[in-house]
Design a protein around this nucleic acid. Structure first.
Lengths: 107, 107
DNA sequence: CTCATCCGTAAGTCATGACTTATCGTTAGT
DNA sequence: ACTAACGATAAGTCATGACTTACGGATGAG
Protein backbone atom coordinates (compact mmCIF):
# COMPACT_ATOMS: atom_id res chain seq x y z
CA UNK A 1 0.00 0.00 0.00
CA UNK A 2 3.04 2.25 -0.14
CA UNK A 3 2.57 1.96 -3.88
CA UNK A 4 1.81 5.64 -4.17
CA UNK A 5 5.48 6.59 -3.87
CA UNK A 6 6.51 4.46 -6.84
CA UNK A 7 3.42 5.55 -8.76
CA UNK A 8 4.23 9.23 -8.30
CA UNK A 9 7.81 8.67 -9.38
CA UNK A 10 6.66 6.68 -12.39
CA UNK A 11 4.09 9.20 -13.62
CA UNK A 12 6.43 12.14 -13.05
CA UNK A 13 8.16 11.33 -16.35
CA UNK A 14 6.38 12.75 -19.43
CA UNK A 15 7.28 9.82 -21.68
CA UNK A 16 5.96 7.37 -19.13
CA UNK A 17 2.75 9.34 -18.84
CA UNK A 18 2.39 9.11 -22.62
CA UNK A 19 2.81 5.35 -22.48
CA UNK A 20 0.28 5.13 -19.70
CA UNK A 21 -2.23 7.32 -21.51
CA UNK A 22 -1.83 5.25 -24.64
CA UNK A 23 -2.46 2.07 -22.67
CA UNK A 24 -5.62 3.52 -21.19
CA UNK A 25 -7.04 3.21 -24.70
CA UNK A 26 -6.40 -0.54 -24.64
CA UNK A 27 -3.61 -3.15 -24.41
CA UNK A 28 -0.66 -2.92 -26.79
CA UNK A 29 2.68 -4.63 -27.45
CA UNK A 30 5.99 -2.88 -26.88
CA UNK A 31 6.75 -2.26 -30.53
CA UNK A 32 3.45 -0.53 -31.16
CA UNK A 33 3.96 1.70 -28.15
CA UNK A 34 7.46 2.60 -29.31
CA UNK A 35 6.21 3.42 -32.80
CA UNK A 36 4.14 6.29 -31.43
CA UNK A 37 6.96 7.76 -29.39
CA UNK A 38 10.18 9.67 -30.15
CA UNK A 39 12.33 7.16 -28.24
CA UNK A 40 13.80 3.74 -29.00
CA UNK A 41 12.17 0.44 -28.15
CA UNK A 42 14.60 -0.39 -25.34
CA UNK A 43 13.71 2.92 -23.76
CA UNK A 44 10.05 1.95 -23.85
CA UNK A 45 10.91 -1.40 -22.29
CA UNK A 46 12.64 0.36 -19.44
CA UNK A 47 9.71 2.69 -18.92
CA UNK A 48 7.32 -0.24 -18.88
CA UNK A 49 9.44 -1.92 -16.24
CA UNK A 50 9.11 1.13 -14.00
CA UNK A 51 5.37 1.35 -14.61
CA UNK A 52 5.02 -2.35 -13.82
CA UNK A 53 6.95 -2.08 -10.55
CA UNK A 54 4.66 0.77 -9.58
CA UNK A 55 1.63 -1.46 -10.09
CA UNK A 56 0.40 0.69 -12.96
CA UNK A 57 0.59 -1.90 -15.75
CA UNK A 58 0.48 -5.67 -16.31
CA UNK A 59 2.13 -7.68 -19.02
CA UNK A 60 1.30 -10.98 -20.67
CA UNK A 61 3.13 -13.00 -23.29
CA UNK A 62 1.35 -13.43 -26.61
CA UNK A 63 3.50 -15.37 -28.99
CA UNK A 64 6.65 -13.38 -29.52
CA UNK A 65 4.86 -10.19 -28.53
CA UNK A 66 4.57 -8.94 -25.00
CA UNK A 67 1.30 -7.19 -24.47
CA UNK A 68 0.98 -4.55 -21.75
CA UNK A 69 -2.21 -3.29 -20.22
CA UNK A 70 -3.24 -0.97 -17.42
CA UNK A 71 -3.36 -2.36 -13.91
CA UNK A 72 -5.86 -0.51 -11.69
CA UNK A 73 -3.82 -1.35 -8.61
CA UNK A 74 -1.28 1.48 -8.86
CA UNK A 75 -3.87 4.01 -9.95
CA UNK A 76 -6.02 3.01 -6.99
CA UNK A 77 -3.19 3.53 -4.53
CA UNK A 78 -2.59 6.96 -5.99
CA UNK A 79 -6.23 7.86 -5.73
CA UNK A 80 -6.38 6.68 -2.14
CA UNK A 81 -3.40 8.82 -1.16
CA UNK A 82 -4.84 11.80 -2.98
CA UNK A 83 -8.30 11.45 -1.48
CA UNK A 84 -6.80 11.19 1.98
CA UNK A 85 -5.27 14.64 1.54
CA UNK A 86 -8.01 16.14 -0.54
CA UNK A 87 -10.44 16.37 2.36
CA UNK A 88 -7.80 17.53 4.81
CA UNK A 89 -6.49 20.12 2.38
CA UNK A 90 -9.94 21.57 1.81
CA UNK A 91 -10.56 21.69 5.55
CA UNK A 92 -7.26 23.43 6.18
CA UNK A 93 -7.99 25.87 3.40
CA UNK A 94 -11.46 26.63 4.69
CA UNK A 95 -10.13 27.07 8.21
CA UNK A 96 -7.56 29.50 6.89
CA UNK A 97 -10.15 31.59 5.09
CA UNK A 98 -12.13 31.62 8.32
CA UNK A 99 -9.07 32.69 10.30
CA UNK A 100 -8.46 35.60 7.95
CA UNK A 101 -11.94 37.03 8.39
CA UNK A 102 -11.41 36.98 12.18
CA UNK A 103 -8.06 38.65 11.81
CA UNK A 104 -8.91 41.89 13.62
CA UNK A 105 -10.18 39.98 16.70
CA UNK A 106 -6.92 38.06 17.17
CA UNK A 107 -4.59 40.96 16.79
CA UNK B 1 -5.15 22.72 -16.38
CA UNK B 2 -1.77 21.36 -17.41
CA UNK B 3 -0.89 21.68 -13.75
CA UNK B 4 -0.91 17.95 -13.32
CA UNK B 5 2.52 17.58 -14.95
CA UNK B 6 4.20 19.91 -12.49
CA UNK B 7 2.21 18.43 -9.62
CA UNK B 8 3.36 14.91 -10.45
CA UNK B 9 6.96 16.05 -10.71
CA UNK B 10 6.68 17.93 -7.43
CA UNK B 11 5.15 15.08 -5.44
CA UNK B 12 7.56 12.53 -6.88
CA UNK B 13 10.19 13.68 -4.41
CA UNK B 14 9.87 12.10 -0.92
CA UNK B 15 11.06 15.20 0.92
CA UNK B 16 8.54 17.35 -0.92
CA UNK B 17 5.79 14.89 -0.09
CA UNK B 18 6.76 15.17 3.56
CA UNK B 19 6.54 18.95 3.39
CA UNK B 20 3.16 18.70 1.70
CA UNK B 21 1.84 16.19 4.24
CA UNK B 22 3.01 18.39 7.06
CA UNK B 23 1.22 21.38 5.54
CA UNK B 24 -1.98 19.41 5.25
CA UNK B 25 -2.09 19.63 9.07
CA UNK B 26 -2.10 23.41 8.84
CA UNK B 27 -0.03 26.43 7.73
CA UNK B 28 3.58 26.72 8.88
CA UNK B 29 6.62 28.96 8.34
CA UNK B 30 9.73 27.70 6.57
CA UNK B 31 11.83 27.33 9.71
CA UNK B 32 9.30 25.14 11.42
CA UNK B 33 9.03 22.93 8.37
CA UNK B 34 12.81 22.59 8.18
CA UNK B 35 13.03 21.69 11.87
CA UNK B 36 11.09 18.48 11.26
CA UNK B 37 13.18 17.41 8.29
CA UNK B 38 16.69 16.03 7.80
CA UNK B 39 17.62 18.79 5.31
CA UNK B 40 18.73 22.40 5.59
CA UNK B 41 16.43 25.40 5.51
CA UNK B 42 17.52 26.52 2.03
CA UNK B 43 16.65 23.07 0.76
CA UNK B 44 13.15 23.46 2.18
CA UNK B 45 12.86 26.87 0.51
CA UNK B 46 13.74 25.30 -2.82
CA UNK B 47 11.21 22.54 -2.32
CA UNK B 48 8.53 25.06 -1.43
CA UNK B 49 9.29 26.97 -4.61
CA UNK B 50 8.66 23.83 -6.66
CA UNK B 51 5.46 23.06 -4.77
CA UNK B 52 4.28 26.63 -5.28
CA UNK B 53 4.91 26.56 -9.03
CA UNK B 54 2.90 23.36 -9.17
CA UNK B 55 -0.04 25.11 -7.55
CA UNK B 56 0.18 22.88 -4.51
CA UNK B 57 0.94 25.56 -1.90
CA UNK B 58 0.45 29.27 -1.24
CA UNK B 59 2.61 31.60 0.76
CA UNK B 60 1.94 34.80 2.65
CA UNK B 61 4.25 37.16 4.50
CA UNK B 62 3.74 37.40 8.25
CA UNK B 63 6.29 39.76 9.73
CA UNK B 64 9.67 38.28 9.05
CA UNK B 65 8.17 34.82 8.70
CA UNK B 66 6.82 33.42 5.48
CA UNK B 67 3.89 31.16 6.11
CA UNK B 68 3.02 28.44 3.63
CA UNK B 69 -0.26 26.63 3.32
CA UNK B 70 -1.83 24.11 1.02
CA UNK B 71 -3.44 25.34 -2.19
CA UNK B 72 -6.24 23.06 -3.41
CA UNK B 73 -5.60 24.09 -6.99
CA UNK B 74 -2.73 21.69 -7.73
CA UNK B 75 -4.32 18.83 -5.85
CA UNK B 76 -7.51 19.41 -7.81
CA UNK B 77 -5.71 19.26 -11.15
CA UNK B 78 -4.08 16.01 -10.08
CA UNK B 79 -7.41 14.56 -9.05
CA UNK B 80 -9.02 15.57 -12.32
CA UNK B 81 -6.29 13.89 -14.35
CA UNK B 82 -6.50 10.79 -12.22
CA UNK B 83 -10.27 10.55 -12.37
CA UNK B 84 -10.19 10.93 -16.12
CA UNK B 85 -8.06 7.80 -16.36
CA UNK B 86 -9.58 5.94 -13.49
CA UNK B 87 -12.82 5.26 -15.33
CA UNK B 88 -11.10 4.49 -18.62
CA UNK B 89 -8.61 2.20 -16.94
CA UNK B 90 -11.34 0.24 -15.22
CA UNK B 91 -13.25 -0.07 -18.48
CA UNK B 92 -10.16 -1.28 -20.33
CA UNK B 93 -9.44 -3.72 -17.56
CA UNK B 94 -12.98 -5.07 -17.53
CA UNK B 95 -12.94 -5.36 -21.33
CA UNK B 96 -9.73 -7.32 -21.10
CA UNK B 97 -11.15 -9.75 -18.58
CA UNK B 98 -14.12 -10.18 -20.91
CA UNK B 99 -11.83 -10.78 -23.86
CA UNK B 100 -9.98 -13.49 -22.01
CA UNK B 101 -13.12 -15.48 -21.26
CA UNK B 102 -13.99 -15.41 -25.00
CA UNK B 103 -10.50 -16.50 -25.92
CA UNK B 104 -11.43 -19.85 -27.49
CA UNK B 105 -13.93 -18.19 -29.86
CA UNK B 106 -11.37 -15.80 -31.33
CA UNK B 107 -8.64 -18.34 -31.95
C1' DC C 1 20.41 53.04 14.30
C1' DT C 2 22.37 48.58 15.26
C1' DC C 3 21.64 43.82 15.63
C1' DA C 4 19.53 39.45 15.35
C1' DT C 5 16.24 36.56 12.98
C1' DC C 6 14.05 34.72 9.08
C1' DC C 7 14.14 33.67 4.42
C1' DG C 8 15.44 33.51 -0.54
C1' DT C 9 19.10 33.15 -4.07
C1' DA C 10 23.82 31.94 -5.97
C1' DA C 11 27.20 28.69 -6.91
C1' DG C 12 29.08 24.32 -6.79
C1' DT C 13 29.01 19.09 -5.92
C1' DC C 14 27.29 14.61 -6.49
C1' DA C 15 23.92 11.02 -7.37
C1' DT C 16 20.19 9.55 -10.12
C1' DG C 17 17.88 8.45 -14.16
C1' DA C 18 16.55 8.90 -19.12
C1' DC C 19 18.44 7.87 -23.19
C1' DT C 20 21.55 5.46 -26.69
C1' DT C 21 23.77 1.18 -29.19
C1' DA C 22 25.04 -3.58 -28.80
C1' DT C 23 24.01 -8.16 -27.50
C1' DC C 24 21.31 -12.32 -26.14
C1' DG C 25 17.18 -15.33 -25.50
C1' DT C 26 12.80 -16.78 -27.30
C1' DT C 27 9.21 -17.69 -30.53
C1' DA C 28 7.27 -18.35 -35.37
C1' DG C 29 7.69 -19.35 -40.05
C1' DT C 30 9.89 -21.78 -44.05
C1' DA D 1 17.63 -26.41 -38.73
C1' DC D 2 17.92 -21.54 -40.27
C1' DT D 3 16.32 -17.12 -40.25
C1' DA D 4 13.73 -13.20 -38.93
C1' DA D 5 11.01 -10.58 -35.62
C1' DC D 6 10.21 -9.16 -30.97
C1' DG D 7 11.64 -7.96 -26.61
C1' DA D 8 14.65 -7.60 -22.36
C1' DT D 9 19.12 -6.63 -20.47
C1' DA D 10 24.04 -4.59 -20.32
C1' DA D 11 27.00 -0.87 -20.54
C1' DG D 12 28.02 3.70 -21.23
C1' DT D 13 26.86 8.84 -21.86
C1' DC D 14 24.82 13.04 -20.53
C1' DA D 15 21.49 16.11 -18.42
C1' DT D 16 18.80 17.07 -14.47
C1' DG D 17 17.93 17.94 -9.83
C1' DA D 18 18.52 17.45 -4.74
C1' DC D 19 21.57 18.84 -1.61
C1' DT D 20 25.32 21.82 0.61
C1' DT D 21 27.63 26.44 2.23
C1' DA D 22 27.94 31.32 1.55
C1' DC D 23 25.79 35.51 0.94
C1' DG D 24 22.32 39.39 0.59
C1' DG D 25 17.78 41.60 1.63
C1' DA D 26 13.93 42.57 4.59
C1' DT D 27 11.58 42.91 9.09
C1' DG D 28 11.20 43.58 14.21
C1' DA D 29 13.36 44.51 18.82
C1' DG D 30 16.37 47.10 21.88
Amino acid sequence: MTYHAAAFAALADPTRRQVFERLSAGPAPVGELARGLPVSRPAVSQHLKVLKEAGLVNDRAEGTRRVYQIDPKGLGALRAWLDQFWAVALDAYAAEVERQSNEQDDE
